[in-house]
Amino acid sequence: MSKLGLWGLKKSPWVYHLAAAPCNNCDIEILELLTPRYDVERFGVVLVGSPRHADALLVTGVINRKSLPRVLEVYEQAAKPCLVICIGSCTCNTHIFRNSYNVVGPYDKHLPVHAYIPGCPPKPEAMILGVVKALSKL
């Protein structure tokens, strides 16, 4: 990736929020980041509506059998390099659902993962920190 492109990516990461089979909690906390208390748009983080525009995928929830092909397709559609940031314990290690028949394992079995943010749900501050750390690795 060119130096300019990398600078642009770090300066203003566009994120796409991908909820596989969540309980909505991490998803709400992600939206919470946009509202006045946290307001991450100050730092150039924009939530976009299409994976094709995304620099980073914020993934939440466990992957189940029905959502796995769709999750993989979204990842295919995203322009590379694309960071995959796992939000919540479900994404990191399938959490309380590990014994379920319909859950097909944590994200790192299926996608290259760049950052794990455990917590149920992680606090918005933790999410900001996680995204910053993932970007600083680039």
């Binding site: 929830g61 189940n64 029905k66 959502s67 769709r70 659902f97 379920s100 028949y101 319909n102 859950v103």
Partner: peptide
């Protein structure tokens, strides 16, 4: 529907 099926009723008896 069914995209969010995680099998709560199956896990609960465990």
């Amino acid at each position: 529907i069914g995209y969010n099926h995680r099998g709560h009723e199956f896990i609960s008896p465990e």
